[in-house]
């Protein structure tokens, strides 16, 4: 059996050691944490700081399929089969839209506008002509 002096002496040794462990500086602690992560990594155990993984891997595949289905449903509601897009007149068939667009070229548009607003263009030419003359002088 140990005598009390010996017990005190051994307790003092342990106390000093515990103090030295508790008073390790922040840099050394950080380096120890890095060393632990490196050791686990090297041993084939990859550790990641942060929350533990609780979502199973297959759930990502299910979420992807669900998202694709949702997008398909939304598109289906916005553009019903055989209908036209909003703002073009609901009773005009799509094939007629295409024929209308194909039949008019930009050049036709210009000629048509000139014919309808001939007076305006004549007036505009008269207003701009004196300004051009002044620039020439």
């Amino acid at each position: 059996m140990k005598n009390p002096v010996s017990i005190d002496w051994e307790a003092r040794c342990r106390e000093l050691y515990e103090e030295s462990v508790a008073s390790l500086d922040v840099r050394t602690r950080a380096r120890l944490t890095e060393a632990r992560h490196a050791a686990l990594e090297a041993a084939g155990v990859r550790a990641h700081a942060g929350a533990r993984r609780t979502v199973p891997r297959w759930s990502w595949a299910v979420a992807g399929v669900a998202a694709a289905l949702l997008i398909a449903v939304v598109l289906r509601i916005a553009t019903p089969l055989g209908g036209s897009s909003a703002g073009t007149g609901g009773d005009v068939p799509r094939s007629e839209d295409a024929a209308l667009v194909a039949s008019t070229s930009p050049a036709d548009d210009s000629v048509e506008m000139m014919r309808e607003d001939a007076d305006f263009y004549a007036w505009a030419a008269g207003v701009s002509a004196p300004a051009d003359d002044r620039q020439a002088e």
């Binding site: 120890l32 060393a35 090297a42 041993a43 155990v45």
Partner: peptide, 21 residues
């Protein structure tokens, strides 16, 4: 020595994790 001590601890941790985990 601080650096040698850190290296020794890391090496010991690596060996424990690799062989005896």
């Amino acid at each position: 020595d601080v650096d040698d001590a850190l290296d020794a601890v890391q090496e010991a941790m690596t060996k424990l994790a690799a062989r005896y985990a």
